[in-house]
Nucleic acid binder design. Structure first.
Length: 329
DNA sequence: AAACATCCCAACCGCGGTGCG
DNA sequence: CCGCACCGCGGTTGGGATGTT
């Protein structure tokens, strides 16, 4: 037996909200609050809407101090950092960005930020396509444009198909230790607070806010974690009750997402970063954090990044640390 | 200018967590 | 302990806006 519907679907209006509906809902909540019961609210105020719909409309649109669009670079960085750290926990990410809703951030990530990451892969794809076409047009090797000849053994024209192949995630190495699963809410909560999560009921919410918002988080809070831990040899894996996602903290308390996608794979851009032993690849895909003005040049085992504008290298270095420590295990 | 493609985001849906009787 | 009802979250969708051919 399925769950009972939360409302009479036949008698509720769906689709975009009319200004009058917005005004009715807003006026009521501002005067009386939600009363703790969203389901009953629409009937009270004569709206032919589902309670869930009212809640969503209020939280995502009508609530005071909501910001829409115009994400700053700083916000981009925070979102990206947190996504790398904790995955698609939009509500936690939203808690770090005053005035932003989880829905807003989710949309922003899915429509723009993610594409910045994939943009690098797409550029490569276009480059390969272009190369293939030119190679096919060429009737002799001498006609192949030098711009598409790749040094080394790799021959770009031999790589088919045209669609990018997303890497399949190898199993996450646990070293020689069994992971210690922390599944209780308190532990997860504490962990998320350390990572920058805020909870409305926290007594120390102001302190947490001041620690987190002004200079996000990963470095400082990982240092805290590192300093406070007595047992830095163990992995700590947190399996959250909310979803199948989980986090893994390695022995140096850098945070690694081991969040599985629906088909058991990682977001491809990130998995490449985490698993690559190639310093060039470690930095590929991170342009979204420091802009397109930067170039990564790799020679031997070291990478040199050059750019015109100033960058928050603290942020970069913490991410780089995450990746390096992973690779060295 | 029209047709088509793509982007973007508000809103919906379904599920897991939680509180309560 | 169990079942119901509600809350809140993350994933997905629909359609208007915008860009491209």
């Amino acid at each position: 037996m399925g769950r009972a519907p939360c409302c009479d679907k036949a008698n509720v209006k769906k689709g975009p909200w009319a200004p009058e509906e917005d005004a009715t809902l807003k006026a009521y909540i501002e005067e009386h609050g939600t009363g703790g019961n969203w389901i009953a609210l629409p009937q009270k105020i004569g709206l032919k809407r589902c309670g869930k719909s009212c809640r969503l409309r209020w939280l995502n649109y009508l609530r005071p101090n909501i910001k829409h669009g115009g994400f700053s670079e700083e916000e981009d960085r925070i979102i990206c950092s947190l996504y790398v750290s904790i995955g698609s926990r939009w509500s936690i990410i939203a808690a770090q960005l005053p005035g932003r809703t989880d829905n807003d951030i989710k949309n922003y990530w899915n429509t723009r930020l993610k594409k910045k990451i994939l943009g690098k892969q797409r550029k490569d794809l276009i480059y390969r396509r272009k190369g293939d076409l030119l190679m096919k047009k060429a009737r002799s090797p001498s006609e192949i444009p030098s711009s598409i000849v790749v040094s080394g053994n790799e021959n770009i024209s031999s790589q088919d198909p045209y669609l990018p192949e997303l890497p399949v995630m190898p199993p996450m190495p646990y070293l020689n230790q069994e992971p210690c699963f922390v599944s209780d809410h308190t532990s997860v909560r504490k962990l998320l607070i350390k990572l920058g999560g805020r909870f409305s009921s926290d007594d120390n919410v102001n302190q947490v806010q001041s620690n987190m918002v002004s200079h996000f988080p990963i470095d400082n809070n990982l240092n805290d974690l590192q300093a406070s831990s007595q047992n830095d040899q163990n992995f700590i894996a947190c399996s959250t009750p909310v979803s199948s996602s989980s986090m893994l903290l390695n022995s140096h308390y850098n945070i690694l997402p081991i969040q599985e996608g629906q088909n058991g794979t990682f977001p491809s851009a990130f998995e490449e970063m985490y698993y690559s032993t190639n310093p060039q690849k470690q930095l590929d895909g991170l342009e979204f954090l420091y802009g397109d003005m930067c170039e990564v040049n790799t020679s031997g085992s070291s990478s040199v990044v050059t750019c015109g504008d100033s960058i928050d290298w603290g942020e970069m270095s913490s991410l780089s640390n995450v990746m390096n420590s992973t690779n060295h295990q």
